[in-house]
Design a protein around this nucleic acid. Structure first.
Lengths: 348, 348
DNA sequence: GGGACGACTGGGAGCGCTCCCAGTCACCGA
DNA sequence: TCGGTGACTGGGAGCGCTCCCAGTCGTCCC
């Protein structure tokens, strides 16, 4: 009778971390019971729960995410996907605020955040398999441009996602969270009007970005509501960069020397505008009032500090994460618009 | 004779993604052979390899990372760990540059980057189990302060890690990649001396950060080498923030009105210094030359644009990733110092 | 008394991989 | 002819979990 040699291989390794099996043995219960405690402890007697908790603490047990993922078919992580030319985002001061907010909001749920860039076609090709294989459970999509190709990819992959800002040029229902750009712009322009300004110019954001479009629309709307005749010579369009703000302001001042206020669609551009104004010898806010948008760090560092509309980044990131988790949990898409807040400093 | 009912449960679900088994069946080989192809194709006949590749393409097969992790005991991902008060980093323009560089360098190896913050004690407690359970294979540690507690944690967890910048106050060998702060500072001060400046002040960085210490040391060293008597009235210490640069410059000018140059340890502080100088009616660079450090975006946006030392962020992040992967592969710790580069603009 | 029910538990099966052993087959040199 | 060797392959075992089924108890109601 030959003895069966059951190739017990058991990789030799220095002290493997404890498994659910060890915990079960220590607590004198079965693996099933430990697993039940791990996911909330329903249908577990108080005595068992306590024994398991004690064993977990004693052994320093941490669940093995790979094993869990394998059976639950869930990655247990979420992606922060930058679908945009690198520089545009990485130089945007709002970007880090958003990243920080999302990281924190997810940390509360114990969900790791994976950062992925998809600025070029090559990068998109590389990450598509990653996404369609569901190596993350959902995606926070950061893209400011019209028609990001990622929206289509994500839909096809069947991955839940939430956009930051309204995605332009998309058919069908897309989840997004955005600040109320139009209402924010209106409030700022209204504030300028009410503080007695009469010739209010604007430097808008790029017209292929939702913020750019909406803020310009808000500007026009308020003026119309107040019976001010539209004057296209008072409108410049920038690209959110410092330089475009400076250049835009220069053109505005050349065209309409007696303007007495300007609503600039981003703080960075507003800072550039400040420089252009200063160069002509005009004083801010005495001669020209300047209103920005974002309340990014440059706003308080600018000279004079900028009056601006604060974007509620904390709430935006929290809401994005909340929505994403809801969608991963099976809920349908939704859109959330959050109010902005006027921050009065010295420039207006 | 009761028939054994083998509870074939096989979760019913809409079209599961193809597994290695499906690929094997399609290619007419065994799972083992597919697996071998997946990891480089050693000991696989060309015919098999080709059949497997074709099957993979046809089925759109993507390896299941969870399953692989489970058996290899490797997470297949790496952490970007911010061990620092949130704001300090998230407002640092270099931070995003570094994050971008690391993401890109890792993307080339198909390794996802997980962002983790550990600014507070509570956060550290939360992430410690995550790290010690090896939910990532290694850590890129971003911390500018003396004695980050994370170094100890990581050591205890046996996780490979590489610091960005020399970690202060650490015993034992720690891997790090840093710019040559001291040599960079020396080059800048040398440049100021050679362009005829005689009373050169400095606004140093915080003295609990390696950059702060080294750049100040470099400043002192060059002056000594050139036979300039040390004068502590010419030294101010800031915290890298815009405001501290402005305040420091104000104090310097009050104390030593006839200084004709200043070496500022960061561009952000240098921009603040510019404002303080401008307010006194002095001209830059005619009256006071200003040299910064970093070559961050503010350097070119400043008025006048800053002459500064460029930190080689791209190479730093690439090198950090390279070192980390080497350590994950079993190599020992190492330190790498990369040269900085003088960028001459208008301020000096 | 007996059936129904709810609370709780144990443990088999299986998630999709990699690892490793035992082959098989051709080829070579003695 | 035969053993040895190297290239290649198949498939069992097992990584650490969760899921689910089949139990085992009390309890309660008819």
């Amino acid at each position: 009778m030959t003895e069966t040699t059951p190739h017990r291989r058991r990789r030799v390794q220095a002290k493997r971390p404890p498994t659910i099996h060890d915990v079960a043995a220590h607590a004198g219960v079965s693996r099933g019971t430990v697993s039940r405690v791990l996911q909330g402890g329903h249908n577990v007697s108080p005595a068992s729960r306590e024994a398991v908790d004690a064993a977990i603490r004693k052994l320093g047990y941490v669940v093995n995410r790979a094993a869990r993922s394998l059976v639950t078919q869930r990655a247990g992580s979420v992606a922060f996907l930058l679908s945009e030319t690198q520089d545009r985002f990485f130089e945007d001061p709002n970007f880090t605020t958003l990243l920080r907010g999302c990281t924190q909001a997810l940390a509360a749920h114990d969900i790791p955040l994976v950062v992925i860039t998809a600025g070029t076609e090559a990068e998109r090709r590389r990450i598509t398999p990653f996404l369609s294989a569901h190596h993350v459970d959902g995606v926070l999509l950061i893209s400011s441009h019209r028609g990001s190709p990622m929206v289509g990819h994500l839909r096809r992959a069947g991955l839940p996602f939430v956009c930051c800002g309204k995605p332009l040029g998309q058919r069908g229902k897309v989840s997004y969270v955005a600040a109320d750009d139009r209402e924010g712009a209106k409030e700022m322009v209204r504030y300028l009007l009410e503080s007695g300004r009469e010739r209010i110019a604007t430097i808008a954001g790029p017209q292929d970005s939702p913020g750019g479009v909406e803020r310009l629309a808000g500007y026009r709307e308020v003026l119309a509501e107040h019976g001010v005749a539209p004057d296209e010579r008072l409108v410049e369009v920038g690209d959110y960069s410092w330089a475009s703000g400076e250049a835009g302001m220069q053109r505005l001042l050349a065209r309409v020397p007696d303007l007495d206020a300007v609503f600039v669609a981003s703080d960075l551009m507003a800072d550039g505008a400040l420089t252009a104004i200063g160069r002509t010898g005009r004083r801010v806010p005495a001669d020209v009032a300047v209103g920005g948008f974002d309340d990014s760090p440059v706003a308080s560092a600018a000279r004079p500090p900028l009056t601006t509309m604060r974007q509620p980044w904390d709430r935006i990131s929290e809401t994005m994460v909340g929505r994403l988790l809801a969608q991963i949990g099976g809920e349908g898409p939704a859109t959330v618009i959050l109010p902005t807040e006027l921050v009065v400093r010295e420039s207006a």
